[in-house]
Simulated scan of single mutants.
Amino acid sequence: MGKWWPLFLSLLGVAQVGHAQQQPAQDQAALAKDCSNKVYQDSLVARYLDRGAHRVSYLSPQWAQYCDSLIAACPTIAYAYQQKAMPLIKCGDYAKAFPLIDQAVALDVNRWLAYRGFLKCIFTKDYAGALTDFRRVAQLKPQGREMDHTYAFFMGLCNLEMGKYKDAEADFAEDMRLQLGADGRGEIHFNTLLYAGVLALKKKQYPQAQTHLERCLKAYSQHPEANYYLALAYQAQGKPALARQHLAASQRALIGGYRLNEDNIYYANYPGQITEFEVIQAQKKLAD
């Protein structure tokens, strides 16, 4: 018995090594199967994003490394591609960012199509492309929102910037209708009123522009753009004193740090967004 015991142990060791060598292949097969499981996907997101990328700066190389690890573990998680693209978007590297966003849309169109339309509208100024995305997602989710706004809001911005004023007017009217709700008691976002006012100003409908912009200022009195464009509406109606008053208010707001109050204004300019330069130029024109 003593002679056979070492041989038995050596054979057992060989069997265990063989089992260990087979284990990675089995694990890989299990992981591939589990990748379609939502619970498993959530566990990967928690591991690589919640407890990984989101604990470092998005400017750190580690952010992309965590995203790459998540994609390697499960290449069908759309959120991984969007998160990898996010720092690139904020840094203006759209050429690298948009293929990742396109992949996110391909994997989860309901979640990321409107987001891509938003990026096209605000970041890259691809208004025609943004319109295409928002029209498509509006059919999928008629009551949907992106960045706290209806899809009609962004469609209105696109048409406004493209000079399609009749379409923009219809879009902003639909945006207001959706915000008011079926009972008509909802609140209209102050930036909807801002852009409706800008649109009326471009159409030289000055009293209507004044109405929209005054309503905007009731909701957000320090709004720099609303004060600025209201000043232009007053100036066009031959009311220089009121124009000067609102230009001064716009300048004070800008100096005080007030802005459009949209989350992404630090990374991209919204349509019609102003700086103190525009205010000073308008003041000089009034003084002439």
Rank of each mutant, 00 (worst) to 15 (best):
I265Q: 13
F123C: 06
Y127H: 12
R47V: 05
Q245D: 15
D42N: 14
L9G: 03
A95G: 09
D133F: 04
P24T: 09
D148P: 06
M176S: 14
C216G: 07
L88R: 07
Q245M: 11
T124Y: 03
A80G: 08
L70W: 01
H223P: 01
Y258G: 01
Q62F: 06
K285N: 12
D288G: 15
A152F: 11
Y165K: 01
E174T: 07
Q143R: 11
L230Y: 00
L286W: 04
Q103K: 15
L12N: 02
D167A: 15
R259Q: 09
A282D: 00
L178I: 10
L59C: 03
F277D: 13
G18F: 03
F172K: 06
I265W: 09
A219N: 06
G197E: 05
E214A: 14
L254N: 05
D167I: 13
K239A: 12
E276K: 11
D126C: 09
K33V: 15
A196H: 05
A243S: 05
Q210W: 03
I188K: 02
A200D: 04
G156P: 01
F98D: 07
G238N: 08
D263R: 02
P224M: 10
D34G: 10
K164C: 08
Q281F: 06
I265D: 15
A236I: 07
K96N: 12
Y206A: 02
L157W: 08
I274K: 03
E146P: 00
L217N: 06
L194T: 05
L230C: 00
D263N: 08
G272Y: 08
A219I: 07
I122Y: 01
S221W: 03
L160Q: 10
C91M: 13
L31N: 11
C35Q: 12
W5I: 14
T150C: 07
Y66E: 08
D34P: 04
S57A: 11
P99N: 12
V56N: 01
D68V: 10
G18M: 10
E278P: 02
S36K: 14
D50K: 13
V45Q: 05
V279W: 05
P6E: 07
Q103I: 03
M162D: 12
Y267V: 15
I274W: 06
W112F: 12
Y66G: 08
P6H: 06
V198L: 11
M162T: 14
H246Y: 12
G238I: 09
L11N: 00
L113F: 00
N37A: 02
Q245N: 14
D148M: 02
G144K: 03
V279L: 05
A236Y: 01
Q26I: 09
G92C: 13
R177A: 14
W5A: 12
Q21N: 11
